[in-house]
């Protein structure tokens, strides 16, 4: 019998600890599949920022560095410079990358460092309880925008991939989504492309993944997927902004 679907070797036997319906498990599993398919388990390093995914080192089997909030981009650059053999990727939320770590996230692309940046955008600060993020949609209610995000006072949602794509140093920039199976498969392709680029020395790649957060959105997992399809994609269009 031929196995058509197996557990990735990137995970051990522990449960992830994510809320039911969370997107992190899907993204980290896809990264694990890429690791297996590309044969880079001895070289792969995840650099984790601070957010819901910070404790994910527990259930992953490969090398992991956990760094301060927002700083994975800088740590990845330093690591890649010291050991170019590593396949280094940053794993961050939208607040980690787009707010506190804006500078450290953008500068690897300015320099054109050969690293991979995976950003999970769920439009809120989830780990701290659902505060407004740079990506929160106009009018979206959060604990710190109780009347809905007022874009006149707090600005429009931040589009990090579009910004990074405009920099000469970036090579591949895409936004993908997890809201249905077809899009999950596309997301996997984009993530794999981002890792292949690094392996082949192409240069800086960023993939932003639109991801559901049932606990903070106060929605059922299936309704979260519908919200992404109907509302979130309208603000954050999917696509490849740069590179193949």
């Amino acid at each position: 019998m031929k196995a058509v679907y197996e557990k990735t070797t990137a995970f051990n036997d522990l449960v992830t600890g994510y809320c039911p319906g969370c997107g992190h498990g899907i993204v980290q599993r896809m990264i694990g599949e890429c690791m297996d398919e590309l044969g880079i388990s001895d070289r792969l390093v995840a650099i984790l920022g601070v957010g819901c995914s910070s404790p994910s080192w527990r259930f992953m089997t490969y090398d992991i560095l956990s760094v301060p909030h927002g700083r994975p981009g800088a740590a990845a650059s330093g690591m890649k410079k010291c050991d170019p053999n590593k396949i280094v990727y940053t794993y961050q939320g939208d607040g980690d990358s787009g707010s506190i770590g804006f500078s450290e996230t953008v500068y690897p692309a300015v320099r054109g460092d050969n690293i991979t940046s995976i950003i999970v955008n769920n439009t809120v600060y989830a780990m701290t309880g659902g505060q407004m993020a740079p990506t929160t949609l106009a009018g979206q209610v959060t604990t710190t925008s109780p009347k809905g995000r007022d874009v006149n006072a707090t600005g429009q949602p931040l589009h990090l991939p579009e910004l990074v794509a405009s920099l000469p140093g970036s090579r591949y920039v895409a936004r993908v989504s997890l809201h249905d199976t077809a899009h999950i498969r596309k997301a996997k392709q984009a993530i794999k492309q981002a890792f292949e680029n690094q392996i082949n020395g192409v240069g800086y790649s960023m993939v932003e993944v639109l991801s559901p957060c049932p606990s903070i959105w106060r929605m059922k997992p299936v309704d979260c997927m519908e919200r992404i399809a109907r509302e979130v994609i309208r603000e954050f269009p999917l696509g490849t902004f740069k590179g193949a």
């Binding site: 560095l65 760094v67 301060p68 700083r71 800088a74 740590a75 330093g78 890649k80």
Partner: peptide, 13 residues
């Protein structure tokens, strides 16, 4: 901030 975090990334190897 970036300098010291680059150093952290390098040191981790």
């Amino acid at each position: 901030i970036a300098a010291v975090n680059m150093m952290f990334g390098g040191a981790a190897t």
